[in-house]
Write a protein that binds this DNA or RNA. Sequence first.
DNA 1: CAGTGAGCGAGCTTCCGCTTGACTT
Length: 736
Amino acid sequence: MSKKKNLVIIESPAKAESLRGYLGDSYDIVASNGHVRDLPKNYLGVDESDNFKPTYTILPEKRKTVTQLKKAAKGYTRIFLAADPDREGEAICWHLSQILERKDVVFGRLRFNAITKDTVLKSLKKPSSIDMQLVDAQQARRVMDRLVGYKVSSWLQRIMGKGKSAGRVQTVALRIIQEREDIISSFVPVEYWLIDGEFTQGKSQFTASLCMIDGKSSGKPGKYPACEEDAQRMIERVKDTGINWEISRITSREKSVTPPPPFITSTLQQTASNRLSFSPSRTMSIAQQLYEGISFGSSERKGLITYMRTDSVRMSPDSLKSCREYLAEKYGSDTLSDNVRRYRSSKGSQDAHEAIRPADIRLTPEKLESILTPSQLSLYRLIWNRLAATQLADAKIMNTSVTVSGAGLEFSVTGEILLKPGFSIIDQAFINTKNRLPELNEGKVILGSYKKEQKFTSPPPRFSEARLVAEMKKVGIGRPSTYVSTIKTLRKREYVEKDGKVLIPSELGTTTVRLLIRIFPHIFKVDFTARMEELLDSVANGTETYPGALQQLSLPLESSLQMAMKNTDTFRNELQEETGEKCPQCNAPIVIRWGRYGKFKACTSFPECRYSKPLEEDNSSEYEGRTCPECGGSLLLKTGRYGRYLSCSKHPECKHTEPVPTGVSCPEEGCSGELVEKRSRKGRLFYACNRYPECKFAVWNRPIDKTCPRCGFPVLVEKNKKKGIWCPSCRKKIVT
DNA sequence: CAGTGAGCGAGCTTCCGCTTGACTT
C-alpha cells in the first residue's frame, strides 16, 4: 500500500536516484528541480511599506513539477524535505512546505551534506523542522537582489535604452573587468635591458643574467641599464678579456611543495580552461554529464563524480579513507602523505556539498577510457588526479642559485631539480621545474658569448572567463551555480566581448559601469556583498530581523536612487555627444545618444521632432577592391544579425549581398572558387568555398595567404599565438 | 560545418539562485 510509504523531496533528479538506491521501496522520492517559487517576473513583488513583504509566484517553468509534487504528496501525512543544507536549500524546503501545506501533513527537514547511505539514514532518524531564521536570511538576499536589480535596471534603461540591466553581481563583475582595462590602457611600459652571458666550467655550460653592477642591482625595470646606450656600455665592460670570472657562490635550498586542494567549481573551471582549453560553460556541462553518470554494460547508471556546483573543499571521511587505501594499494604506503590531509571549507562557504571528486577513486581514468567521450575522460582525469594527489606525500624540489662574479659585476641564474616527485607521480603537470642546471662548483669559469636584449614591462592580462570566475570567487560575489550565467549576461547585454579567450569591455559596458559606479557608489562594490552577507548571517542566527536587514541594506540604495531620479535628464545629457549637424526637419542640433541598439543620431527637440538616423560608420564601411557583380556599385561591409556580410552600396535599389571574402583561393583541385566567411547554425564562424554547393570545401579556422611547406595548403592562423600555426589540411605544426 | 541579413531606438523590462529539459523554433 502506498500509504505506508514515506515521501522525500530532494532538489536534483540525480540525487533522487541515489536516494532510491539507499532507501528502497518504502520511500517515494521526487525531485523539485531546484526552486519552485520566486518573486514575480513582471513587477517588483516587494511591499516596502509593509516590512518588505514579498509576493511569490510559481515559476512558470516549474508548473508541471509543482502539479506532480502535489499529486505525489496526496495521501502522505509525513513529508521529508531534503534540499541542500544551506540558505537556498532551506528556502526551497519552506516554499515546498507552503505549496504542499495541508492540515493533516507534517513536514520533516532532512539535512545531510554528503549522500551516503549512512548519512541519509541517520538524518531520517532525526528529522528536524524548517529553520525560519535561515529562510528569512535567504528571503532578505532574494529581495535585496530584486530591489537593486529591478530599480537600478529600470532607471538605467531611461539613460542607456531598453533591455539594459544592472545587478549586485553582474555590475561588480563588469566593474572588475573595466578596472583591469583601465590599468591596461593607462599602463606605461618601462624599458629595461637584459644582458646574458654563456659560461662554461669544464664540460658544463650555462647561461646567467647580469644582476649586479658595482654592488647595485641591475637588469630589472627601473634599474640600469635602461636604454640601448647604457646596455652597450655595459657590454663593453663585459667584453674585457682580462676579467677573471668565477663562480663565487652556489646556494642550494630544499623546498617542499604540497598538493593543491581538491576541486571546487571555480578551480575546476580554471584548471580546465588552462589545461584543456574548456570554457567554464563547457566544463560545467561535461561535469554535469559525469555527475549524472554514464550507463555502461548492464550495470545501472551511476554518478562518476560528486556534485559539481560547490564552493567547499571538504572531503567526506569515507572518501578520505578509501582514497588512502586505494593509493597505498596501488603505489605503496610510503607514497602517502605522513598525515591525512584534511581540507576545511573556505571562509564564507555555505558548505552544502563536498569538494568535486570522483565518486569512486577505484574507478581510474584508464578504466573508463573506452566508455567516456574524449572530453569527458580528460575532465574526469583532471578531477581524479587532483583528488589522488591530495593524499600523497609532498614533492621535494632543490632550488639552486649560482652567482658568477668578476670585475665588480655579478651574473646569476637559478635552477630547479625535482628531488622527490611525491604527489606529482600522478601527473607531472602538477610541478613544472624549470631550468635544470648542470654540475657546477665554486671556482673559475669562462665567459663565452654574451648578448643584450631589450625588454619592456607589460600590464596585467585581461580576464579570461575562468580567471574572472576565480576573481569573483575571491571577492565573494556570485555562487557556483551562477558564475557562468553572470558572464553570459554580460555578453548578452553586449557589455563585454570575447576576443579569443579574454573579455574586453565594450564602449557600452564602459559607459554603463562608470555611470553606475558614480551614481550608486555604495551598491556596486565588493564591500556591499560582504556587508550583505554579514547581515544575512545575523538574520540566520537571530541577532537581526528580516526587515531590519533590508532596512539597512536599502538605505544607500534609496538615497542614491532618489538622487538619480531627480537628475535623470542631466545624466542622460552628459552622455550625449555633439555632432555639429543640424536636423533636416526642424534645424535643431543633432546629437549622438544611446538607444536600444547602441548609439544613434537624434534631434534634440525630441519628442516634438522625431527625426533620427543611425551612425553609418558603425555597422557599414566600404570594402576595398570589390564591386557588386550585379550593378557594378561598391560593396559595403555590414554587420547584421548573422555576423558580417557585404552588401551593395546602391541598396535598396540593388539587393545584392555576399559573404565576406578571405582573399584565399579554394585549395580544392580544379576549383576556382574563393574561401569566404560563413556561419554554422550554432553561430560559429567557419570558412568555406564560395562555389558551394558545387564545391564543399570548408575549414573551421581562418586561412591566410601563405602555404604549408608540407602539403601546399593555405596556412591558418590560430588566435592563440602561443599555440603556433597549424596546417588545416595535414594538421601538422608549421615552424615559422 | 552551409538560409539570411537593411534603417529600429527615447517606459514595461530588469535581478540572483536553485535545478534540468525539449510543446519542436
